[in-house]
Simulated scan of single mutants.
Amino acid sequence: MGLPRYEPAPDVCRAIEAIRDALGDELGYIDVERVRCYRSIGARTRALARIHGVERLLLVALGIKPIYVIEVVSEKFYRLGLEDRVKVLIHELLHIPRSFSGGLRPHGRYVNNRRVASLYRRLVEKGGVKIICERVNDASWCTGGTGE
């Protein structure tokens, strides 16, 4: 098995945008125009998804604003049901600090399973799951298929 392959994941970006919109009071600071979404194929990791910040010096050298890359590990992420996929994405979004500086929040007080569960409940109460299904526009996202 060689290096992982990466491809754009517009379904994930649409889901993230719907999550941000539904949880605007908590995640409204996230500029979805500066979040890129990719799926990895063949990645050797235990993770379901990862978030990557771009190093500050690189951003300065390139003259660009901070961006974040959310990677979903396709062999694992797309096997999850809708609820777990959404929780994984909420978890990754919580790593982005309010300052949107390019850095990442660590696991702990702000990024933890209790907070993810709380935000997921609020998302459900606001009808956000239905919005995600509409925006992603891929039946397998909402029926538990493979989604690839």
Rank of each mutant, 00 (worst) to 15 (best):
M1R: 10
L3N: 13
R5Q: 12
Y6Q: 08
E7N: 00
P10Q: 01
D11C: 05
D11M: 08
V12D: 08
V12H: 09
R14V: 00
R14C: 01
I16R: 00
A18I: 00
I19W: 10
I19K: 03
D21L: 11
A22D: 00
A22Q: 02
L23M: 07
G24V: 02
E26R: 12
L27V: 02
Y29H: 09
Y29R: 01
I30G: 02
D31C: 01
D31M: 03
V32R: 05
V32Y: 05
R34S: 05
V35M: 06
I41T: 05
G42W: 08
T45C: 05
L48D: 12
L48N: 11
A49I: 02
R50A: 07
G53E: 02
V54Y: 13
L58T: 13
L58N: 09
L58G: 08
V60M: 13
V60A: 13
A61D: 12
A61N: 11
G63L: 02
I64L: 11
K65T: 11
P66C: 01
I67Y: 14
I67F: 13
I70H: 09
E71R: 11
V73Q: 13
V73A: 07
V73K: 05
E75V: 02
E75N: 08
K76M: 06
F77R: 09
Y78S: 07
R79G: 13
L80R: 12
V86I: 15
K87G: 03
K87D: 07
V88F: 11
L89W: 14
L89E: 11
I90E: 06
I90N: 04
I90W: 09
H91W: 12
H91V: 02
E92H: 03
E92C: 02
E92Y: 09
L93V: 06
L93A: 04
L93D: 08
L94C: 02
L94I: 06
L94W: 07
H95Y: 13
I96R: 04
I96K: 07
I96D: 12
P97M: 00
R98Q: 10
F100T: 02
F100A: 05
S101I: 01
S101D: 15
G102E: 06
G103K: 07
G103Q: 02
L104H: 05
L104P: 03
R105D: 14
R105Y: 14
R105V: 13
R109L: 14
Y110F: 14
V111Y: 10
N112E: 08
N112L: 01
N113K: 04
N113R: 08
N113A: 04
R114L: 14
R114A: 14
R114V: 12
R115A: 05
R115E: 15
S118E: 15
L119T: 09
Y120P: 00
Y120I: 04
Y120D: 03
R121H: 10
R122A: 08
R122W: 13
L123M: 13
K126R: 15
K126A: 15
G127R: 01
G127N: 04
G128W: 04
V129D: 03
K130S: 04
E134T: 00
R135W: 08
N137V: 00
N137Y: 12
N137Q: 05
A139V: 15
A139S: 12
A139D: 14
W141S: 05
T143H: 03
G144E: 08
G145D: 12
G145H: 07
T146R: 15
T146K: 14
T146D: 15
T146L: 14
